[in-house]
Design a protein around this nucleic acid. Structure first.
Lengths: 349, 349
DNA sequence: CTGAAAGCGCTTACAG
DNA sequence: CTGAAAGCGCTTACAG
């Protein structure tokens, strides 16, 4: 645990010079630099991060705020976080995981947050975490819209859920599907609300009515042992018992899709011959691994993560120039083998 | 951004007293405490974390080191991290994500790590990260054994992979299975090596030979688009094409298990009627969601995470008393519906 | 129970 | 290009 004084003394320079050799904020002569570095290696010296932070007023860390509670990483989360970490590292920032519960923030700050900014995932209506950031004057960017009173402007990244559902419907209807079942996310999530509305709208535009049994919501996350087999049950129920006509199923994640695939096989039907499956998001390597491989809408979560960091860097002044405060990342349809073209098959007859 | 001086002045006390009110390291009179808190609220004051750290020499953060490269969270990782975060929060510590690549650590420390200790996941042989921790005199605990030269003692948490495989074999053989296929993890992982050896040994002890086609390794993680459908292909190949007799398949994670289930259904066989499936680890909620639900060995990753933090707390002096330097967390078999008893069925005939 | 003062290990104007 | 000195915002013996 050598400190700057030790190095300065041994290298016969001032502390300021040692500081400059490491920070490279001011030029140093080759001779001095090498002398300092040599002594530093010898002493195993590295500048103390905390002391530096105290004077620069930068922690070089950003917070990544994840709601605690029933904590679970979907493929979306995993990839998003991956994007955040890599992009942050690129700018020399580390990532501090925060787990402020969405509600009941008891002891808000025992001390200040040792972060320069934060990425807030899944903001809820009037999210306490956002009020805290706002109070603490910590720059932040959210994934999805902020819905807090008293906060007007805010920086965010998001997918366009409305556009996305519309594209999915266009794709499926374009392939001849008119009886589409939608297994949506939890009822309470804002994305799920947006997607449902957009789904109905997109079908309507194409002259197709969406009956109630065509939309289902994933039950709220329960204790794992109580977890219902949502995708499987719904599929067996609607296609098997109720014998409804369904030619395509949209599943809101890869796990649900797998469960649906499972059910279809148990009904002695085939994918995509009898029923097509379309996945929103999900882990690509997993969807390739499936048989048949699953056609999906890639939400580019890792790109979302990277963009959120870039927005933060703009706010922190690390990145210069103009920028959009609200960034929309496009969803991309990745065609694999789980969606059939109904028209073509009929043509062949 | 009020500072301690502002509060001290307004509350008409010394800085030291304000400090005590917040840190509670020395008693303060009610009167003074309330005066200080009232002023602090008014000024929106919170102690500066960095300044405190500089003098206490504690960052109140622990690092969580995850190999970067083909970064992917399995259910094990997710739950492990969850355990780490919650347990760390319990002791007032935050979690800093570290992404030092396993190899090529170029600029080891531009500055010191702002952490008090670290949890290192997946140590590899002669892991550079561990050498760094060792050099930097940062206490750390690993998940799995350390295999570095020059490092003799180390603190770790782990499952007993040998015991675990033995238990699984005992369980399956006990149910009448003698032809068991094992879809193991990546060949290079230490857990996979341990499990393979143990599998062969456990079968041998029971008078059963393991032929080569009975053990397969997951291919190294490739670009997602090149990812082979490992579990599916192997199952179709061995059971379908080669027509080998296999009554039970052990899959090393839930995703592989799903893929196997998929294959078995495509072979017009049933689970567990024709083939049983046993999963090592995996996400419980997902395995319940499957049909049939999947019998598995729960590695208790979140318990492993919590224990690793507790070990760290011991090393940091936060937790007092004696402790084991190497903690083994038991794997628990969770019986669900994917393993049949062959003996019973034959009895019925 | 409270205060005055030194110090944690750096960086940063200010001079030269 | 380099040095001397002040200061970042706290905590902590030391006195009382």
């Amino acid at each position: 645990m050598a400190k700057i004084d030790d190095v300065a003394r041994l290298a016969k320079v001032s502390k300021g010079t040692v500081s400059n050799v490491f920070s490279q904020k001011r030029p140093t002569s080759n001779e001095v630099r090498e002398r300092v570095m040599s002594v530093s290696r010898q002493l195993n010296y590295v500048p103390n991060h905390t002391a530096r932070s105290l004077v620069t007023k930068k922690t070089m860390a950003i917070g990544l705020t994840i709601p605690h509670g029933s904590f679970f990483f979907s493929a979306f989360h995993t990839q998003f976080i991956n994007g955040v970490i890599l992009e942050a590292a690129y700018y020399g920032y580390r990532v501090l995981l925060d787990i402020i519960p969405v509600h009941e923030v008891k002891t808000p700050f025992l001390t200040s947050y040792p972060i320069d900014g934060a990425v807030v995932m899944r903001p809820t209506a009037n999210d306490e975490r956002i009020n805290l950031m706002h109070m603490g004057q910590i720059p932040f960017v959210t994934v999805g819209h902020v819905m807090n009173e008293n906060i007007e402007h805010s920086t965010s990244v998001d997918n366009d859920n409305v556009q996305m559902m519309s594209n999915i419907c266009e794709y499926l209807v374009g392939k001849g599907h008119t009886d589409i079942m939608f297994l949506n996310a939890n009822e309470h999530m804002t994305v799920s609300i947006d997607r449902k509305a957009s789904f109905i709208q997109a079908m309507k535009v194409r002259g197709l009515d969406v009956e109630e049994y065509m939309i289902h919501h994933k039950p709220p996350e329960l204790n794992s042992s109580e977890y219902m087999d949502y995708g499987y049950e719904e599929t067996i129920d609607i296609l098997g018992k109720q014998k409804k006509k369904v030619t395509a199923i949209i599943a809101d994640d890869d796990r649900t899709a797998f469960s649906v695939l499972n059910a279809i096989k148990d009904l002695n039907l085939s994918v995509p011959g009898d029923v097509s499956i379309f996945v929103i998001c999900g882990d690509n390597s997993m969807m390739v691994q499936s048989n048949p491989s699953l056609t999906s809408m890639d939400l580019q979560p890792s790109e979302l993560g990277a963009q959120s960091v870039r927005l933060l860097m703009h706010q922190l002044g690390v990145l210069q120039g103009d920028y959009d405060e609200n960034i929309i990342v496009e969803g991309k349809i990745i065609e694999r083998n789980s969606v059939s073209t109904i028209g073509h098959e009929e043509d062949r007859k």
